[in-house]
Design a protein around this nucleic acid. Structure first.
Lengths: 84, 84
DNA sequence: TTATCATTTAGACGTTTGTCTAACTATCAA
DNA sequence: TTGATAGTTAGACAAACGTCTAAATGATAA
């Protein structure tokens, strides 16, 4: 859970997750959505991967990124636990 | 929501929130639960306050800290939104 | 093979973070 | 008013973070 909250702290990374809600995207597509260099986006994606918040699948030269709903479920459980 | 995620990034602060689930605590009581100096705990409490994750009420020389469930609800909504 | 496109790695740099000790403010009790 | 207790503020410092440019790697197409 530590890596998850670490990943969620940054607004760019949260926005990436929200983009991935609609479906998978390549690193390049994600980078286009921001005013940030590709290496920086690559770094953000790496942190999201480490937190297991996203999964990556290669198709040719493209890397497709998906939201990992399992970990989102874990996060949900953590918040619900805090509530009760 | 920015301040909330910033506050949640630190494991000590997350643990403080979990302690407050059971009821309000003074800053001193909270500090005792950790191997960290009081000024550091005070700083953590300040960040939790800024994120509005806790509320504070003075009773004499003691400051009682409470979990703010409203903001936890907002967080919950954010996570649920990510899921669908 | 060579050129090209997609993405990552390396290394640097300024900013933010978490921690500490020392000093301060606030409240209560004698 | 003085002393003790609760908590915060100030200032320092190392470590982590987010960003960049330049260079490297991976994969495809000619």
């Amino acid at each position: 859970m530590d890596e998850v909250f670490k990943a969620l702290k940054d607004p760019t990374r949260r926005k990436i997750l929200q983009l991935l809600k609609r479906g998978s995207m390549t690193a390049g597509e994600i980078a286009e959505a921001f005013d940030i260099s590709k290496p920086s986006i690559s770094h953000h994606l790496d942190l999201l991967k480490r937190a297991d918040l996203i999964t990556v699948e290669r198709r040719g030269q493209f890397l497709h990124h998906h939201l990992n709903t399992t970990v989102v479920e874990n996060l949900l459980a953590w918040v619900i636990d805090l509530k009760e």
